[in-house]
Amino acid sequence: MIDHLHQTDVAIIGAGPTGLFAVFECGMMRLKCHVIDPLEMVGGQCSALYPEKPIYDIPAYPKIGAQELIDNLMTQIKPFHPEFHLGQQVMKLERTQGNRWMLSTDHGTTIVAKAVIIAAGVGAFGPNRPPLEGIENYEGQSIFYYVKSRENFRDKRVLIAGGGDSAVDWAISLAEVAKSVGVVHRRPKFRCAPESEAKLHELEKAGKIELLIPYQLEGLKGQGDQLDSVVLKSLEGEEKDYPCDVLLPFYGLAMNLGPILEWDLALHHNHIEVNPQSCATSLEGVFAIGDIATYPGKLKLILTGFAEGAHAAHAARAIAHPGETLHFEYSTTSGVLGIA
């Protein structure tokens, strides 16, 4: 492989929504950015896993699709001309003699940066697969862990398993196109936005969603790779068959930090510990934002990641241009590189 050497102000690891907004905030600080991501596309989970998922907690957008959010962020950062290195994983992070950070990827790319912002989300991700016998026979045909297009489920009998935001949001969305939607969960309380839970119960009362509580997945029945029904089991041991064409288990993602574990960062339960005031990690000049960062009181929201990106960008500028004073201005005053 040929080594490609780049010099920049800030290297951002991760091209999900938090990483992309960090590009904007760095641009407002007049910092040049290079962005590295192991996926072949920008957008992280939003683009790779659920591009049509509705998101309800982005300011000024009562509802926005995940891919639409990414497209808007790409438009927002275009004036700053960031350089992307996609389909590459950062393998090494090393301090240089010139007080810089050198990042080396598995494709032979080398980036020397004055500061680093880690916005790697959950790291390398994959679904938490429910322990059901023979589940692999149905995956990709009747069992899916992500929804890329809800049209794929039009007029289908859909069973969703889980109680988090993904399960509830997709239940609400698929109720508009599916023949039927059932949601199986072990407890009455859902781990989602209160408004979403209220909408879920509203659709239940209207007969558009069936809530199967308290039940959990017990087994699968079908022919070949096509499901006929899913066996559900109550906490008391009662079993029943629930007819369905599709099962969507939303039990979260398995987190794998990969090479990040070897970078001598202070970690807490596979998350990077940061100072919430600046998002600085235990390594000077390295910051972490988004779901991978942790501190007391942390809320795992895209909105939180956006704010952390602003904190990290301001702190990174002090490192990239030490001793240089930058008078803070609101974007409504300064504009974006002269764009009104």
Rank of each mutant, 00 (worst) to 15 (best):
M1G: 09
L5Q: 14
L5F: 11
Q7F: 08
T8N: 05
T8V: 00
T8S: 02
D9Q: 07
V10L: 07
I12F: 07
G16W: 05
V23S: 06
E25H: 08
C33L: 04
P38A: 00
L39F: 13
L39K: 14
M41L: 12
Q45G: 07
A48D: 10
L49T: 04
L49Y: 11
E52A: 04
K53C: 09
P54H: 05
P54W: 03
I55Q: 02
Y56H: 15
Y56T: 04
P62G: 05
I64N: 00
A66L: 10
A66D: 02
Q67N: 13
F80T: 03
P82F: 01
E83D: 15
F84C: 01
T96S: 13
G98L: 10
W101E: 09
L103Y: 06
L103F: 10
S104H: 09
T105F: 10
G108W: 12
K114R: 13
A115M: 07
I117K: 01
A119N: 08
G123P: 10
G123F: 14
A124H: 13
N128R: 15
P131V: 14
L132I: 15
G134N: 03
G134E: 07
E136H: 09
E136V: 09
N137F: 10
Y145R: 03
E151D: 12
E151A: 09
R154K: 12
D155R: 04
A161T: 12
G163V: 01
V168N: 02
D169N: 03
W170S: 01
I172K: 05
E176K: 13
V181Y: 02
R187L: 07
P188Q: 07
K189Y: 12
K189N: 14
K189H: 08
R191A: 08
K199H: 06
K199A: 11
L200S: 00
L200H: 01
K205Q: 14
G207V: 12
K208M: 12
E210Q: 12
L211A: 05
Y215L: 12
Y215I: 07
Y215A: 10
E218H: 15
G219E: 15
G222L: 05
Q223E: 13
L227K: 00
V231Y: 00
S234C: 03
G237K: 08
E238I: 09
V246G: 02
L248R: 07
F250N: 02
M255G: 09
A266V: 13
V274S: 04
N275V: 14
S282P: 05
E284Y: 10
G285C: 01
F287L: 02
A288I: 07
I289P: 01
G290N: 02
G290S: 01
P296V: 05
L299I: 10
L299A: 00
L301S: 09
L301V: 11
T304E: 13
T304K: 04
G305Q: 06
F306W: 11
A307W: 12
A307L: 15
A315N: 09
A320H: 02
P322S: 11
P322N: 10
P322K: 04
T325A: 11
H327L: 14
F328G: 10
E329P: 01
Y330C: 15
S331H: 08
T332H: 06
S334W: 02
V336Q: 05
L337E: 06
L337S: 02
G338H: 03
G338S: 08
A340L: 11
A340N: 15
